[in-house]
Design a protein around this nucleic acid. Structure first.
Length: 265
DNA sequence: CTCAGTGTTCAGTG
DNA sequence: TCACTGAACACTGA
């Protein structure tokens, strides 16, 4: 589930539970892939006893801001999430990092397929994995002109550009498909060929889809029934939207792409 | 058994 | 050097 809205929901949960709290106990799993080479002991030692002063996010990366020392930066990959643990509950399956705050609250980062990463950085925004990201479309959506100009420079399919994290950080596969569907733009069209009005519609849909998804804590059951989201999964032949429109599947930008030919051109 | 998959990175190409 | 593409990565579940 981890695109911008899901990550923002995780950040808010972490903020609610951990902000202002001292980390009393920190356990890191033995997983040098997810920890990018760092040992469980070094991670635990760097965080134990520190106080979480806040949280922050850019695109699909979020982190805990610490009173001193390095901040843990989380990236969920395809299958990561943050879960709240109740008192005495055993560590969940696929847990990678477990934090217990001084108030007793427990939180775990889990990751089933290990494509996510947990890294430590003194200054997250300057760390190499964040410094190359483009604008965060929820926090800092460019105004119409710079947005249009940025797209006009790109020859790749518009969907591939939306997925490019150095363009817009946080847009993933379902958001790109959703926004293009709602904007009435076919995913394979080159970004530089779009008309100015199409680009502005795209920009507005990007804003509204993110705003709505974040406002319901990324709980997809609460996404509007009109969204393509509800019928795009599984690559089912003959799939239709809630409005009865036929859905087609293609590969664009290396990803499975759901689109509605009768509504997108 | 095979394959797709909500993500990123890196090698190869033009 | 740049923009872009496609494969690789890891592993579960259909």
């Amino acid at each position: 589930m981890p695109e911008l809205p899901e990550v923002e929901a995780a950040r808010r949960l972490a903020d609610r539970v951990l902000a202002g709290r001292r980390l009393e106990r920190v356990r890191a799993a033995r997983d040098s892939l997810v920890f990018d080479g760092a040992s469980p002991r070094s991670v635990s030692r760097a965080l134990t006893g520190r106080t979480v002063t806040g949280t922050d996010r850019h695109g699909k990366q979020f982190w805990l801001v610490m009173d001193r020392g390095p901040c843990p930066i989380f990236h969920f990959g395809m299958t990561g999430s943050l879960v709240l643990l109740s008192d005495g509950e055993p560590s969940p399956r696929f847990w990678k990092l477990e934090l217990r705050a001084d108030c007793g609250a427990r939180v775990a980062i889990i990751n089933k397929r290990r494509l996510g990463r947990i890294r430590l950085a003194e200054d997250p925004r300057r760390s190499p994995h964040l410094s190359r990201l483009g604008f965060d479309p929820y926090l800092d959506l460019p105004s119409p002109r710079p947005f249009r100009e940025a797209l006009a420079r790109r020859k790749a399919p518009v969907k591939a550009v939306l997925l490019d994290q150095s363009f817009a950080a946080g847009v993933g596969n379902w958001i790109a498909d959703e926004v293009l569907y709602q904007a009435g733009i076919a995913p394979f069209r080159r970004a530089c060929d779009l008309a100015p009005e199409e680009i502005e519609t795209l920009r507005r849909r990007l804003r509204s889809v993110l705003k709505k998804a974040v406002s319901v804590d990324a709980d997809s059951d609460r996404f509007p029934r009109s969204w393509l989201f509800h019928s795009r999964w599984g690559r089912v032949a003959g799939a239709r939207t809630g409005r009865g429109e036929a859905i087609e599947f293609l590969t664009v930008g290396g990803r499975t792409t759901a689109w509605v030919p009768s509504a997108q051109e």
